[in-house]
Write a protein that binds this DNA or RNA. Sequence first.
DNA 1: CCATAAAGTGATAATCATTATCATTATTGT
DNA 2: ACAATAATGATAATGATTATCACTTTATGG
Lengths: 128, 128
Amino acid sequence: MKYSKQRELILNTLKEHMVHPTADYIYKVLKKELPSISLATVYRNLNQLAENGVIKKIEGLDGSLHFDHNLTNHYHFICIKCNKVYDVPYDVAPDLADKVFSQTGLIIENYDISFKGVCPECHKKECN
Amino acid sequence: MKYSKQRELILNTLKEHMVHPTADYIYKVLKKELPSISLATVYRNLNQLAENGVIKKIEGLDGSLHFDHNLTNHYHFICIKCNKVYDVPYDVAPDLADKVFSQTGLIIENYDISFKGVCPECHKKECN
DNA sequence: CCATAAAGTGATAATCATTATCATTATTGT
DNA sequence: ACAATAATGATAATGATTATCACTTTATGG
């Protein structure tokens, strides 16, 4: 993988956003900084970074793809109102892969948990 | 929701398939039995059944939508080779919603776990 | 430090799954 | 049986992602 300014910017943008963005969101943000950037480049680099394990893909509620640069073990909380994706710390359910293996014999390579509910931000709005 | 033969057939097809199929798969199966059925009808009814809580939607590895008629609490195992979706019993991780609430304060409405790995069937094939 | 090969880019066309539209048909309660 | 309403089938539209391709940037080795 060769260096490219575009890839660096894409990764930086991802790191700056706690709420894991979609490809299109990153594209719109970067367009301001580097107006010549192409949506195809954003998709290409996000996929490449995900393949190389630098970032991770997350499936949103509506089937949309989000990206996450946080490589430590953790789960996700997806707001059913605004579709934003938040992190949930790993220790709410440690060692799940081992438990599944001992109960089913299935060998788990990895797994995701998506919790769903209304995020604090949207909850506030509802109470107005 | 009015009765329709198409909806009944769609639900039956779903129940007969342990490995949760996609809309397109159900369409192809039903086409043999009821050649006049439309793909749009399959999508319409699956979405409607899911909205009414009769079935559930599952996100596949590749972003594809699968459907599941099993309403009891359980998780899913998705094969990274063949993309088939299997069930994993609930008791490998009971009461997760409560744990998340006590550790984060987030109110969980529901959640899914997708375990990923190579299914026994594909594992056999690899060993030939 | 230039030449060359390999990888990356931007623009746009193509793809593919899912949804929307709409005229027609089936189901339901009275 | 009849009006009201929901469902269907065919097809067009949508929207997100991927492929293509001519051109540019990056890395490297003499």
